[in-house]
């Protein structure tokens, strides 16, 4: 058992400072345990979002020593404890209080994505889908909406591009676009509304994903290839215009 120093960003509406708290570290402890300990012992009103504490709900996203992570899945023994542990809120989102930020933007973006429009059921009232047809999108359904990818992506974080849905929602669109039952073509809005062309494949979303979803390789790049095929491939465009004329 040892003591270590935490420096936590405290304040409201982006004005604040790093405050130091001493934490008693025990075996197997995660950063969220330390936060809860600080709440109970030193700072009752320290604001933080968390729910399941098992890496399944994606609520306790923060930046631990500068790295975007889930606090409940960051073990203390993987951090250097000789120096203070710095906990800051996600910087991409408007600040509310202490470690809590306003993530409502993400819910607004999700609202703009057209929901699944399935084809009709089979005659026996079921849907038939083979495992091999859904395993690709099952990976995307692992997303716990922690919004760490939305936070870290430089297109919004540094470059402040507004017309860009962000990695979480490319995952979501990919899960619809590759859905064996879906009947909508989503490529035009992907290019024009959700701004997939802004992604320059620097893969920070994949790097921070606590669910280890290969966001870039399995969702964004395949979507970019589909968009390329639909809008930028000169031969494909020529072929399509020829075949549509002959009809």
């Amino acid at each position: 058992m040892s003591e270590t120093l935490f420096k936590i960003f405290r304040g409201e509406r982006a004005k604040g400072e790093l405050c130091g708290y001493s934490v008693e570290v025990t075996e197997g402890m995660v950063v969220l345990d330390a936060i809860n300990q600080i709440q109970a012992r030193h700072a009752n009103d320290l604001a933080v979002r968390w729910n399941c504490k098992a890496g399944k709900c994606g609520s306790c996203s923060a930046e631990v020593n500068g790295k975007p992570r889930l606090m409940c899945m960051t073990r203390m023994d993987e951090l250097p404890l000789d120096k203070p542990v710095i906990i800051e809120p996600m910087r991409r989102f408007p600040h509310i209080k202490d470690l809590v930020t306003d993530v409502s933007l993400n819910y607004e973006i999700n609202q703009q994505i057209r929901p699944l429009k399935p084809k009709p059921r089979e005659a026996d009232g079921t849907y038939r889908m083979q495992q091999k047809d859904i395993e690709r999108i099952q990976e995307f359904h692992k997303c716990i909406e922690c919004f760490l990818c939305q936070n870290v992506c430089h297109v919004t974080r540094d470059q402040q591009v507004q017309e860009f849905a962000g990695p979480r929602f490319f995952i979501r669109i990919a899960s619809l676009a590759m859905h064996p039952l879906d009947t909508l073509n989503r490529l035009k809005e992907l290019k024009d509304v959700f701004g997939i062309g802004y992604c320059n494949i620097t893969k920070c979303c994949t790097e921070v994903c606590p669910e280890d979803i290969a966001i870039t390789d399995n969702a964004i790049i395949p979507l970019k290839e589909r968009v390329a095929g639909a809008f930028y491939d000169p031969l494909a465009l020529l072929w399509r215009s020829l075949t549509s004329v002959s009809k």
């Binding site: 790093l18 989102f93 408007p94």
Partner: peptide, 10 residues
């Protein structure tokens, strides 16, 4: 340990 900083602008 009181290094204030602005994070309003991300």
């Amino acid at each position: 340990m009181q290094n204030s900083f602005q994070i309003e602008n991300p």
